[in-house]
């Protein structure tokens, strides 16, 4: 029993870690894709902007939390400017929007390298660690998992209990009808893109103290982000959460038993199987169940 308990805790912490990483990687992408049908291939670089904003203001002397707020704000403004200048012209043109955002991603990676060099000084993970048995675990990483849960809760509240949420959902469901009823859909899209950008920025800000800060750092989030969105399907909250739980559990189990490589393989194999069996992802499965009940 004494040997088993730390092992169970290991698995649990590993699951929370994977879950947090998957959710935080994906949530900005999921909102922009789920609500606007735009696949933002520069999503990873939005995260990078959040991390850069955080690191630069932290090294300029701000306390870490304030620096994170600056990181999120920077990414939000950046996203709004891009929506206004580029993305706005590409609604309903899926492939065009992919090429355009990919181009933005390339420009940003090289741009950051030209302006800030090949890397920024790291921040250093705060808060120390917790001990259990022969193991220890970074407290900050637990906090990240907590942040992902809080974020999901906040989004649920925003979409179901606020007027903005109602208008946003109306816009997704039927753009023309919403406009007829007085919803400024252009404004909704701008706000949604802003929120998606802010969430990407938040991910960058939260992970900045745990990673090396380099121009290409966004790419490490990209696989997890896309895999989560694909497995989750179009429903932003339910799909993303379900995918986070499923993939997080599989990744944690295989990483813990067989190592990082096996964890990653298991993650990708699961994704392939899900796409094959449930082309609409977890959202599709839920809709099916709902229809059968009705």
């Amino acid at each position: 029993m004494t040997a088993l308990l730390p092992q169970v805790l290991n698995l649990l912490l590993q699951f929370l870690d994977s879950f947090g990483f998957l959710i935080l990687s994906a949530v900005g992408l999921a909102i922009i894709f789920g609500m606007m049908g735009v696949i933002n291939l520069a999503h990873g670089e939005f995260i990078t902007v959040g991390a850069y904003g955080t690191a630069l203001s932290y090294h300029a002397g701000l306390p870490l939390v304030a620096a994170m707020v600056v990181g999120v704000a920077t990414t939000t403004v950046f996203g709004l400017i891009l929506e206004f200048t580029v993305v706005r012209r590409l609604y309903g043109r899926l492939l065009d929007s992919m090429v355009a955002t990919w181009g933005i991603s390339l420009i940003m990676i090289q741009g950051l390298r030209v302006v800030f060099g090949s890397s920024l000084d790291s921040i250093g993970t705060p808060l120390g660690n917790i001990q259990y048995g022969t193991f220890s675990y970074s407290t900050y990483r637990l906090l990240l998992a907590g942040a992902s849960l809080a974020l999901l809760g906040a989004l649920y509240w925003m979409f179901t209990a606020t007027e903005f949420g109602t208008r946003a959902r109306a816009t997704i469901q039927d753009e023309e009808m919403s406009r007829a009823l007085g919803v400024d859909t252009n404004r909704m899209y701008l706000l949604t893109f802003g929120i998606g950008s802010a969430l990407a920025g938040l991910t960058g800000a939260l992970y900045a103290p745990t990673m090396t800060i380099v121009p290409g750092m966004g790419s490490t989030f990209l696989v997890e982000a896309f895999v989560t969105v694909v497995v989750g399907g179009a429903s932003v909250l339910v799909g993303t959460t379900g995918a986070g739980v499923l993939l997080g559990a599989i990744n944690a189990l295989f990483s813990n038993l067989f190592g990082t490589f096996a964890g990653r393989m298991a993650l990708l194999v699961t994704t392939i199987l899900i796409i094959r069996i449930l082309p609409q992802g977890i959202t599709g499965l839920l809709n099916q169940i709902r229809e059968e009940e009705a």
Binding site: Q14, T220, V223, S255, G259, T260
Partner: peptide, 8 residues
């Protein structure tokens, strides 16, 4: 491309 080392 791995940057998260919790399980390792």
């Amino acid at each position: 491309d791995v940057s998260q080392f919790g399980s390792t």
